[in-house]
Computed example of a mutant assay.
Amino acid sequence: MKKKLILFALCAFICASCGTVQSIIKSSFPYTATLVIPASSATGTTLTAISQGNSFDQNFAKNGNNGARVSDVHIVSAKMVATIPSDFNIGNLVSAKIYMAKANGDGEVMVASRTDIGSNSGNNIVLDIDNTHFLDELVREKSVRIKMVYQLRNKISLDASLRVVLGITADPTK
């Protein structure tokens, strides 16, 4: 039994260090962030919400992540979902732009946006992606910062939490 456990651990280690496996992991598990819009936010002005983005690698990898094993990383999908309150109408926003950066704010890149949010959009929307930038350097960071620049259409009575889900794709390093 002990030999099987050691063999399994060795196989898992070899697979985890493989670039192909890392590209599958990076492509399968999105970056997520919860951004808060305070009830005190003014309408008609450009506002900002910032949060730390999380990914599978950052949460579970022993030494940060294995971002060095992948390349040609870019956004393939972006979605925003209201979490608190769950019935928050994202249509209260006129527009939203999502940026990804290193934890200190360096290397900021716009990855998604929506400039035409309908007033009755409901509690989730799909964002338009900007996949013109490679995010190789950002996925190699131990943590990333997700920033939303937004404009409110209507005054809100409660703080609203929005979860941003950024799907990426990656190729194994050659």
Rank of each mutant, 00 (worst) to 15 (best):
I117T: 09
D136R: 03
V76I: 15
T115P: 00
A9G: 13
G118C: 03
M100V: 10
L138W: 05
I146W: 00
G118E: 10
V76N: 12
G167Q: 08
K155I: 12
I125Q: 09
A82N: 04
S161N: 15
R163Q: 14
K155C: 01
G122K: 08
I156A: 03
I14V: 15
I156W: 02
N154P: 01
K147R: 15
Q151Y: 01
A103N: 13
F88R: 10
G67I: 04
T34I: 13
F29K: 02
V36S: 11
T115D: 14
Q58W: 11
H74R: 12
I98K: 06
S121Q: 10
A112V: 12
T173G: 00
T46Q: 13
S41C: 06
R114I: 01
A16R: 00
F29W: 14
I14L: 14
T115R: 01
G44K: 03
K62Y: 13
K155W: 04
D106E: 13
V149T: 13
D57Q: 15
N124S: 14
L7P: 00
N92Q: 07
P85F: 05
D87H: 06
A170I: 07
S28Y: 11
C15V: 10
F56A: 00
A78M: 06
G67H: 04
I50G: 00
E137Y: 04
A170S: 14
A82Y: 06
A61M: 14
D130A: 04
I14E: 01
L93Y: 06
S71K: 14
A103L: 13
A49N: 07
N104I: 09
Y31H: 04
D130T: 13
M1S: 14
T45R: 03
E108F: 00
N59A: 14
S77L: 01
S121C: 09
K147Q: 12
